[in-house]
Design a protein around this nucleic acid. Structure first.
Lengths: 69, 69
DNA sequence: TATATTTACACCTTAAAGGGTATAAAAATG
DNA sequence: CATTTTTATACCCTTTAAGGTGTAAATATA
């Protein structure tokens, strides 16, 4: 589950629009859109502001792909 | 397991110095230091560059604390 | 379909992240 | 202990994320 689909699905599950989620999270509307569209270079603290609404936070999760160590 | 201790522990586990990890990950030395010191406003893509070395990536993880939905 | 709502894209400005370098402090090693 | 290695802090500069606003496209609803 990547961040993009996580936020999109959770937001719809609680029936919020992007502007409503933005306001509740205390971030800009543009940020929510970029987050749901998979922009890679977002700021960690802003992402956390959104995830916290759903009882989540950013963390390290395992990755199927190549492992250098 | 937060990102801060995750990176610090993994780095030491594979016996890399901060400059070495920075170079391998393709980020600046300053970034590694701020990451290991818990700076909240780092960029997601840079964090992922580091986590990928260990076979991890940034994702949403559950949070014991308050849940608004 | 028409209409309303929601989402996406573009422009500009501001604030700050990230990098490089230099220096200092701390930790490890002999 | 003295010396080396590693980590932390500070400065300046460049790049860019984030927000606001406006407009267009897409989606939902009547």
């Amino acid at each position: 589950m990547n961040l993009t689909s996580f936020v999109k699905e959770r937001r719809k599950a609680v029936k919020l629009t992007q502007p409503e989620l933005a306001e509740k999270a205390g971030v800009g509307l543009r940020f929510i859109r970029e987050l749901e569209q998979g922009k890679q270079s977002l700021r960690l603290d802003k992402v956390n502001q959104v995830l916290q609404l759903f009882g989540y936070e950013v963390g390290a999760v395992q990755n199927k792909l190549n492992q250098n160590f």
